[in-house]
Computed example of a mutant assay.
Amino acid sequence: MYYSLTDDQRQIQDLLRRVAREKVAKRADDIDRTAEYPHDMYALLKELGLFTLPFPVEYGGTGSMLSACIAIEELARVCYNTAYLLLVQWVPFGAILHGGSEEQKEWLLPGLASGEMRGAFSTTEAQSGSDVSGIRTRAVKVPGGYKINGAKIWCTNSDLADFVLVAAKYEQDGKDGISLFIVEKGTAGFTVGKKEEKIGARGVPSCPLFLDDVFVPEKNLVGGGFRAVMEAFNSSRPLIGARGVGLAQGAIDHATAFVQDRKAFGQQVSDFQGIRWMLADMAIQTEAARNLVYRAASLVDQSAPAVELAPIAAMAKCFATDTAMRVATDAVQLFGAAGVSAEYPINRYFRDAKVLQIIEGTNQIQRNIVANSLLGRVARAR
């Protein structure tokens, strides 16, 4: 029912906190300002061997989603983009690990684990973001494999990825199903478009994808269908919540230091009761979010059934990212006029927090998941 950190997890926390402060923090503003991919930060994470952290020991990991959340939190506390580098590697790794064939695992997982290979995961389309079942990209069976036609948007890491896991509809037992297809870089008809200019998450590119009669061999179909797609989302949601916790804690760190260094009306700004209560509320909300995220991560580690995990993971993602937005907003307020200046980093936390409320399933969708667990699904009108 409850989590507690092991000695190994506390060592991970201590290591990542030190690395974040000494090596990552000084790069964070520059990554955000230039919107250039931080190859040096990727190399650092690769050197630390973090790309398998949540996965089984046989792949070099810890077998712990909680450990992964701790790492994400510590990195996001100083740099959202560096934390994101881990997540975009972990999602395709997890999808292949849980839904892929043995051949696909042998082909892709070693490279993802070492960092020599990059992957990406794509479901979102212009007309269907939250409604994954509404995607129009289609794979048609042809001799030896499938031909895929369609278009995707907001595919993060796609212009750097060696392969993209593309969700597409295809005919299965006479009915439409949805599954993931491994589309390799350089495949004929597969085009990655220009990266989007984003308000936050600027250091890791998100691009549209265009698929025009893209042939993928039979071996590139990932098993599990639509259920595997949704389970990949469920099991990764604690990681999104952990980014929210990290952002909120980082905003508190900056705001606390700022108000302690300022004076107004003859006294320290941090001595005003209104300021102290604002910071207290920020800390209370963040600690509540942290506990909910760690609880969700522990359920993943316990291999909890989807019916139990899905609503808790949705709560964790929703509450933690809403908290990040509230805390970052209050932190900007505590900075006063400096909060809207590009000279101070707090505006970066505000922009990145807004992104988190939308990606990996909007927070409105998370509320639907929780409501469905209480009341059942609403019958669709025919």
Rank of each mutant, 00 (worst) to 15 (best):
A188Y: 08
A188Q: 14
A188C: 07
A188G: 04
G189N: 14
F190Y: 15
F190L: 02
F190I: 04
F190R: 05
F190E: 01
T191A: 08
T191Y: 01
V192R: 09
V192Y: 02
V192D: 01
V192G: 05
G193V: 12
G193K: 12
K194C: 10
K194S: 13
K195W: 03
K195H: 03
E196P: 03
E196F: 03
E197P: 03
E197S: 00
E197D: 11
E197L: 00
K198H: 01
K198F: 04
I199T: 06
I199K: 03
I199V: 06
G200S: 14
A201K: 08
A201Y: 12
R202V: 07
R202K: 15
G203F: 13
G203D: 10
V204P: 03
P205D: 08
S206Q: 14
S206Y: 12
L209K: 09
F210W: 13
F210Q: 15
F210N: 15
L211Y: 09
D212Y: 04
D213S: 09
D213A: 09
F215Q: 12
V216C: 02
V216A: 07
V216T: 08
P217Q: 08
K219Y: 15
N220S: 11
N220K: 06
L221G: 04
L221Y: 08
V222K: 01
G223S: 13
G223Q: 08
G224V: 05
G225C: 06
R227N: 08
R227D: 09
A228Q: 14
A228W: 06
V229T: 05
V229C: 03
V229K: 03
M230G: 00
M230D: 06
E231I: 00
E231M: 07
E231K: 04
E231T: 00
A232V: 02
F233G: 00
N234E: 02
N234K: 03
N234V: 06
N234D: 05
S235M: 01
S235I: 10
S236A: 13
R237I: 03
R237H: 12
P238D: 07
I240Y: 00
I240G: 02
I240A: 05
I240M: 06
G241S: 07
G241A: 09
A242M: 12
A242N: 13
A242Y: 13
A242T: 07
A242C: 11
G244H: 09
G244R: 07
G244M: 12
G246L: 14
G246Q: 15
L247F: 08
A248E: 14
G250P: 12
G250Q: 07
G250R: 07
G250T: 11
I252T: 08
I252Q: 12
I252A: 13
I252E: 14
D253S: 09
